[in-house]
Design a binder for these strands. Structure first.
Length: 421
RNA sequence: GGGCCGUUAGCUCAGCUGGUAGAGCAGGGGACUCUUAAUCCCAAGGUCGCAGGUUCGAUCCCUGCACGGCCUACCA
């Protein structure tokens, strides 16, 4: 019960639930002996009617209190705007801000739409370990925890990649997982320490098949969930309809005058553009930096950026034309990376060599470069079919579909520092 | 990590040049049989984020701290 208008012997109440709002029309006798406050939960039985002003209402015959509010509700008219309170007490945000409720439901519909479509396309949903003895599948710092009985440290997964591909080795052929990944890094409008990731792996597919699958998936999900492929995000009008623009990464950098294999030269060119490259130890890190500073922000309409340097991509197979490039793409919407995909390396020897390349990068000071995973290499030794794999940041797609500008708005309980109370 | 900004009643917000704080909503009491941000009357509601400092006097000026926001840096 979120509004009450007393007219002497007549009382109008607004009852709100997930399905919307209905006005209750109560005569004095119905409310006799009841102590009703805004925020109370009540059940009402009555007949539908229209008031003189034409408002559809329920003429209440019986009103039953179901739950008593004990603390005052935030201002219904102004809503709850204090950002910190909205995040810490999301239940209040949901109670008084309709858009919050709407977007929470939209997220749920989006995830089930994705799930349903993948299921229909022959994918099998699986669950892989969150606690992993070694972490991999992404360049990120992990959270570490400890198992007492086993007396062993575990990492909270930064990706599901390496376990899912073991399932491809095992013959499941099309698998996916939707779950939380954990990365022990900074927070921003598009980063949270725990976030929801979709990864799928498809045997007998390559990155071109995967491009088609993701762009048609996003298009279909948008149509189903918001009824349109057109969205407004961060001040831009965006059309999610397939096919998406394709752009080779070397071409994109070349157009900016930033495509060179010469590390020192690339460093000079970036410095000339006032980029702080002091933290970048390797050519790969410099390229990555150039990409995020000069290319990513320009990719507002959905864009598939493909053919990455081998140094950035320890799990992607090389292109047929150029052994220094791999069959990998990232896709961007609204100047934000939504996900990453590639034709997987399916040869154990190739994979072992890539881990060695990554070890060299670590030795050169890139602390995020992949550590090897001998157990994974062993799995590949039993033969993995050619496979297309993809990751999708679920939270970020929710941002795009809802038009919310920060990831904290699409995660119900975002990570905040504890307040000392 | 750095810079800037914010924190006043349960909520939304005022508060001038330093003189111990106001409103609306919610909550309490009252009037009203068609309201819908209902209206009207009455009363109540405060560790001005926390701790110091300057001052005769601090919500206001200064310092530190906490939490939050934006930018930046870091970051698949």
């Amino acid at each position: 019960m979120l509004a009450r208008r007393d007219m002497g012997k007549l009382t109008f109440l607004d009852l709100v639930d997930r399905s919307g709002r209905i006005q209750l029309f109560c005569e004095q006798s119905v409310l006799e002996g009841l102590d009703l406050d805004l925020g109370d939960i009540v059940g009402a039985i009555g007949r539908s009617m229209k008031t003189r002003r034409g408002e559809p209402s329920l003429r209440v015959g019986e009103l039953e209190p179901l739950a008593k509010i004990r603390l005052p509700l935030p201002d219904i008219y102004h809503g709850l705007t204090d950002v910190e309170t909205r995040f810490r007490k999301r239940y209040l945000d949901l109670l008084v801000n309709e858009e919050t409720r709407r977007d929470a439901l939209l997220r749920a519909r989006m995830v089930s739409s994705i799930r349903r479509r993948l299921d229909e396309q022959g994918f099998v949903e699986v669950e892989t370990p969150v606690l992993q003895p070694r972490y991999g599948g992404a360049f990120a710092r992990p959270f570490v925890t400890h198992h007492n009985e086993l007396d062993q440290d575990f990492y909270l997964r930064i990706a599901t990649e390496l376990y899912l591909k073991r399932l491809i080795v095992g013959g499941l052929e099309r698998v996916y997982e939707i779950g939380k990944d954990f990365r022990n890094e900074g927070v921003s409008y598009k980063h949270q320490p725990e976030f929801t990731m979709l990864e799928w792996y498809e045997a007998y597919a390559d990155y071109r098949d995967t491009m088609a699958r993701i762009e048609t998936l996003v298009e279909a999900v948008a149509l189903e969930v918001i009824g349109s492929t057109k969205v407004s995000f961060r001040g831009a009008d965006i059309d999610l309809a397939a096919p998406w623009r394709r752009l080779r990464l070397p071409d994109a950098l070349e157009a900016e005058g930033l495509w060179t294999r010469d590390e020192a030269e690339l460093r000079r060119r970036l410095e000339a553009r006032d980029v702080d490259v002091s933290h970048d130890q390797t050519w790969a890190q410099l390229i990555d930096h150039a990409l995020s500073a000069f290319i990513e922000p320009t990719l507002v309409q959905p864009t598939i950026l493909h053919d990455y340097p081998i140094e950035l991509s320890p799990f992607a197979r090389t292109t047929d034309e150029d052994p220094t490039l791999v069959e990998r793409f990232e896709y961007f919407i609204g100047g934000m990376e939504l996900g990453n995909a590639f034709s997987e390396i399916n040869d154990a020897v190739d994979q072992a060599e890539r881990f060695e390349m990554q070890q060299s990068a670590r030795d050169a000071g890139d602390v995020l470069a992949e550590e090897g995973d001998p157990d994974y290499v062993e799995a590949l030794s039993y033969g993995m079919p050619p496979t297309g794999g993809l990751g999708l940041g679920i939270d970020r797609l929710v941002m795009v579909l809802t038009g919310r500008e920060t990831i904290r708005d699409v995660v119900l309980f975002p990570a905040l520092r504890s307040s000392r109370e």
